[in-house]
Design a protein around this nucleic acid. Structure first.
Length: 357
DNA sequence: AACACGGGGGG
DNA sequence: CCCCCAGTGTT
C-alpha cells in the first residue's frame, strides 16, 4: 500500500474503532493481567460466550496472586463449559511464572512475555499492544480475514507459514502512534463488518482501500483449504447410584482430552448386544449392578471427533474395590466438580427423569 | 508441518 | 442436519 494511503487507512480504521467499538468489559481496563485473561478466553471463543466467564473469573481471581494461589479444581470449575481446558492450566502456569520471576509484573516485551506458558505469538502481541500500547502484531483469524481482503492476499491460511505473511503485513501497516486502537480496530472490523460470510462492505470504514472490494470478491477470501477427518466414537454413559444415595464419578487422566475433568463412567460401545456394554462396565468398575433405565441420547461434537452418547441410570450396591480414579459423591458434592458439557447433559437428563417420578 | 484440544452459532 | 469458527502446545 502506498505511503499516503497507508496513513489514510490507519486514520480511517482508528477513528472508526474509537467511534464504533463495542463496550466490552475488558475494554474498560488497561491492567495487563485482565487483558491477558480476556485474550486467553477469547481464543477460539466468541465474545458473547466469554463475557460472563470473564466477569466471574476476575471476581474470583482479581489479581495475579489470587490466580497463582488457586486450587486446580476451583480453576477448572470457573472454566467449566468454556472448552479447551488446557488454556486455563497454561494461564495459571504463566501467571505463576510472572509472580515468581517478574515480581508480579507482566513483561512488556515480546521476548519475555512469549516465554510464558500459554502465551503464543497472538496473545503476546495482543497484550503488548492493548495493555502497553506497543507497536506489535497480533494476528488472529479476524486479522487474517480483513487483511486478506484489503491486501488481496491469496495464500492458504491453513498453512502455518502463511501467518508470517500477515504478521509482516501488520508490521508494515500498523499505526505507530495508535497501536492498540489499530490492532483492536482490525479485530473489531473482522468481528462486526468484515465477517466470514456476507461481509457488510457498504458499512466498511476502509472499503476505499480494500483491494478485494474494488477488484475482487471479498466473500471468497481468505483462501483456506479443507482438512480434518472426523472420527466417531459411540459411548454408553452410566449414572450409577448406590444404596445410600451417592453417585459414581471418575476423574479423567491428567493429559489429553478433557484432562482432569470429571465424568460418569463410560464405556465404548462394542456391538449391538444390549447387555455387552453393561457387562464390560461391571467388570471395569467392579460393580454389582441392579435395575437399569434409559436416559438421553445425543451427539457431542469436538473439533476433531464426535461422541455418540447413549446414557443410562443404574442402581448399584456400594463396592470396596473401586478403580483409583473413581469416587462416590453425593449430588451436592458433585456440584463442585468440573464436568464437561456432555456429562452435564447426562446429569440434567437424570435429574429431570428422577424428579418426574 | 501435522495433529490435539471444546464448545457454540448460523444457514 | 451440516457447515463454520481458529491460537497454543506437542510431536
Amino acid at each position: 500500500m502506498y505511503y499516503q494511503y497507508k496513513k489514510q487507512f490507519q486514520q480511517a480504521l482508528v477513528e472508526w474503532y474509537k467511534r464504533e467499538k463495542r463496550d466490552l468489559p475488558w475494554r474498560r481496563t488497561c491492567d495487563p493481567y485482565k487483558i491477558w485473561v480476556s485474550e486467553v478466553m477469547l481464543q477460539q471463543t466468541r465474545v458473547d460466550t466469554v463475557i460472563p466467564y470473564y466477569e466471574r473469573f476476575l471476581s474470583e481471581f482479581p489479581t495475579l496472586q489470587h490466580l497463582a494461589d488457586a486450587e486446580e479444581e476451583k480453576l477448572l470449575k470457573q472454566w467449566e463449559g468454556l472448552g479447551y481446558y488446557s488454556r486455563a492450566r497454561n494461564l495459571q502456569a504463566g501467571v505463576r511464572e510472572v509472580v515468581e520471576n517478574y515480581n508480579s509484573l507482566v513483561p512488556d516485551n515480546r521476548s519475555e512475555i512469549s516465554k510464558l506458558k500459554g502465551v503464543g505469538p497472538y496473545t503476546a502481541g495482543a497484550v503488548l499492544s492493548i495493555a502497553y500500547n506497543k507497536a506489535e502484531h497480533a494476528v488472529d483469524g479476524n486479522v487474517m480475514r480483513v487483511l486478506s481482503r484489503v491486501l488481496l492476499i491469496e495464500e492458504d491460511i491453513a498453512l502455518p507459514k502463511t501467518k508470517k505473511t500477515f504478521e509482516n503485513a501488520v508490521m508494515e501497516l500498523i499505526d505507530p502512534m495508535h497501536p492498540s486502537e489499530f490492532n483492536q480496530g482490525l479485530m473489531e472490523l473482522g468481528a462486526t463488518i468484515c465477517t466470514p460470510t456476507s461481509p457488510k462492505c457498504l458499512l466498511c470504514p476502509v472499503r476505499e482501500f480494500c483491494t478485494a472490494f474494488n477488484e475482487g470478491q471479498p466473500e471468497n477470501l481468505p483462501i483456506k483449504t479443507k482438512k480434518v477427518k472426523m472420527k466417531h466414537i459411540p459411548y454408553d454413559v452410566f449414572v450409577i447410584k448406590n444404596t445410600i444415595g451417592q453417585f459414581l464419578v471418575e476423574k479423567r487422566p491428567a493429559k489429553g482430552l478433557l484432562a482432569n475433568m470429571w465424568q460418569f463412567p463410560m464405556v465404548e460401545q462394542v456391538g449391538n448386544a444390549d447387555t455387552t456394554n453393561e457387562t464390560k462396565l461391571a467388570e471395569q468398575y467392579n460393580l454389582n449392578l441392579l435395575s437399569r433405565e434409559k436416559l438421553t441420547s445425543f451427539k457431542h461434537i469436538f473439533s476433531h471427533l464426535t461422541w455418540h452418547i447413549e446414557s443410562y441410570s443404574i442402581g448399584c450396591e456400594e463396592q470396596a474395590k473401586l478403580p483409583g480414579n473413581c469416587q462416590w459423591f453425593t449430588a451436592e458434592e458433585m456440584a463442585n466438580l468440573p464436568m464437561p458439557v456432555p456429562m452435564q447433559k447426562v446429569w440434567q437428563s437424570y435429574k429431570i427423569e428422577t424428579t418426574s417420578l
